[in-house]
Design a protein around this nucleic acid. Structure first.
Lengths: 201, 201
DNA sequence: ATAAATAATGAACTTCATGTTGTTTATTTA
DNA sequence: TAAATAAACAACATGAAGTTCATTATTTAT
């Protein structure tokens, strides 16, 4: 027996979320007041407090919901490969981009322009780092990395996020599969080769 | 004749800035009140309003000051080269890292952990994009890029920022020159070659 | 169908930070 | 030493946050 079967609750929560995301895009997170949310959602301001403690609480819960979806979307990606292998990168990136394109308005509000919710970006980066790091066990007679693994992860995830933001901001000009493939190429072979620029030292 | 020769003004402004940066690191930007700043700077709350309109105004002015220093630091880097050339990347990155290490506590407060002031990061990225883009004139019989220039810039700047953040957070474990060189290598030849990992398709 | 439980409303209230105004005191510059 | 300016001090208006409580509406269980 689910405790939350009352339709009133679902309806109210849903309209609060909807109002919240609209307002983020319109005026940015900081400028939003609880009254704004209540007006937009057409509920009493008091009702808001029956469901959320405050504005940061609402934000946290919205973020966690989205990110647990993201985690679900990438949990199936294979982990037996070298975490820095090209096929793994490509697979993970494709899964993430597919998930994003299915929830584009949320991600737009969270990541693009003035609306940006930066803790959301940080949380996404954390999830991607954990995934790429998964199953990585360097004590297997492999030669040690010439550069720090942390640095490599930071580099991969940052550039990854950059491409994601570019993709969303430009209204997804390429299919997810192609972005994933191009990105893997850039990152694996360097941007000159990927871009077709002759290397000059 | 400089209008701002009154030592009282300089002293007050200076202690406001100092208090502000300390508080950002202690409790984060959002949680700071004007009263907090006034207490820490040992001035009357009213005096704050004699110098700054409000908290965002103070933040903006602090950011602009730092970033104009950053711009000055990289304005001398040569612009005659291909903006994506390895030597140019390395030169610009070195200049930026040198500037950062000379103002490390400011950049720490702006970029690291919960303190992060994300608009600052966005402004930094803008400056770097503009610099890398400078003098780029593709209509010279060069073969067209195989991938979007915007994407390439986004990718370069994002990964660049990632490395910068890593470097600051880890208390600058390598000299600026080495980071710049390693980064250029990763980005130019791909991370496997740079890290010494054998490529597996 | 009706009663009990729960959700939402509406109003009143406290608290707190913001930003402003006006007066007084201290310090600097001319 | 006088005029100008900065800082301190006090008082005030405003607006949002968050709480409390009584009332109304809606849902669920009997």
């Amino acid at each position: 027996m689910d405790k939350k079967t009352d339709l009133r609750v679902l309806r109210t929560k849903q309209s609060i979320r909807k109002a919240f995301f609209e307002l983020i895009q319109e005026k940015g997170y900081e400028a939003i007041t609880i009254q704004d949310i209540a007006d937009r959602a057409m509920i009493n301001r008091n009702t808001f407090y029956l469901h959320y403690q405050n504005k940061p609480d609402l934000l946290d819960i919205c973020m966690e919901e989205l990110l647990s979806e993201l985690k679900k979307a990438i949990v199936l990606c294979p982990i037996h490969m070298n975490p820095f292998s090209i096929s793994r990168l490509e697979t993970v990136m494709q899964a993430i981009l597919d998930h994003i394109s299915g929830n584009i308005s949320f991600y737009y509000a969270m990541l693009i322009d003035e609306n940006r919710i930066y803790p959301f970006r940080a949380k996404m980066e954390k999830i991607m780092k954990d995934k790429l790091n998964e199953g990585w066990n360097p004590a297997q007679g492999d030669p040690p990395l010439a550069i720090s693994k942390d640095l490599l992860l930071e580099y991969l995830v940052s550039s990854f996020m950059g491409v994601i933001v570019w993709w969303i901001k430009n209204e997804m000009p390429l299919p997810a599969g192609e972005v994933a493939s191009q990105f893997s190429n850039i990152v694996a072979y360097g941007h000159w080769k990927a871009a077709g620029i002759a290397i000059e030292e």
